[in-house]
């Protein structure tokens, strides 16, 4: 079974004759016999997936790394972290997804945050099943707990991923960025209610 190991700003993928899906162009080095080929977009192929991607403004292009050996994956020297999924679902800001182990299902999230734009758009990709997900962030991730009666408000530009029974809503009127008509769009932040974990990066996109 392929294993994903985070090593600072690099993800090491050990392949034993199987395949891992990763963001296109993320290979920086490899040893052994590893091949890279185009593997479609996150969220699967087909008309329905393509339509959803267009609506959500989603464009994660994936490649398949297969063979036997070690592949080193990295993007823009961003910090890498590996999250283990045990049959649950992780919502990931789409540009923060680096790689997923075999057997996990990718989908484009429709409801909630998608569609509303923070300038770049905050479309999320959901990853579900049993396996490993490698995430990328500007600086090491910070995990923040959300509990009943303990909601969390997050800058959309710092949001990386979330898991658990969470509902999201938008808080406007928070004057973090645009106060006197500077910048574009109405300033807003995301509020998480329920029970779960939110991962944020110590930077704004």
């Amino acid at each position: 079974m392929a294993t994903l190991t985070a090593d600072g700003r690099v993800l090491q993928v050990q392949l034993h004759g199987d395949a891992v899906r990763a963001v296109t162009g993320s290979m920086v080095a490899f040893t052994g016999a590893v091949q890279f080929k185009h593997a479609g977009a996150g969220g699967g192929d087909g008309m329905r997936a393509a339509l959803k991607r267009r609506v959500a403004g989603e464009s994660v292009s994936l490649m398949e790394c297969s063979g036997s050996g070690t592949a080193y994956l990295a993007v823009e020297a961003r910090q890498v972290a590996v999250v283990d999924l045990v049959g649950d679902t992780l919502s990931v800001e789409s540009e923060s997804l680096l790689a997923v182990s075999p057997g996990l299902t990718l989908d484009v999230k429709f409801a909630g945050m998608s569609g509303i734009s923070s300038g770049q758009g905050l479309a999320t990709t959901t990853v579900s099943g049993q396996g490993q997900v490698a995430l990328m962030s500007e600086g090491p991730l910070i995990a923040l707990e959300v509990a009943p009666g303990q909601p969390l408000v997050v800058d959309p530009d710092a949001f990386i991923a979330s898991r658990g029974q969470l509902s999201t809503s938008f808080v406007s009127g928070v004057s973090w960025k645009s106060l006197v008509g500077e910048g574009s769009g109405e300033p807003f932040s995301i509020r998480f209610d329920g029970a779960g974990t939110v991962l944020v990066q110590p930077a704004e996109r």
Partner: peptide, 25 residues
């Protein structure tokens, strides 16, 4: 434009060390 993005690779053989950065910048 639908490739894996890894069309160009440097293949290093012999004895020594190669230094790689975690970025394509």
């Amino acid at each position: 434009g639908r490739g894996s993005g890894e069309a160009f690779q440097i293949h290093v053989t012999g004895t020594g060390t190669v230094w790689v950065q975690a970025s394509e910048q």
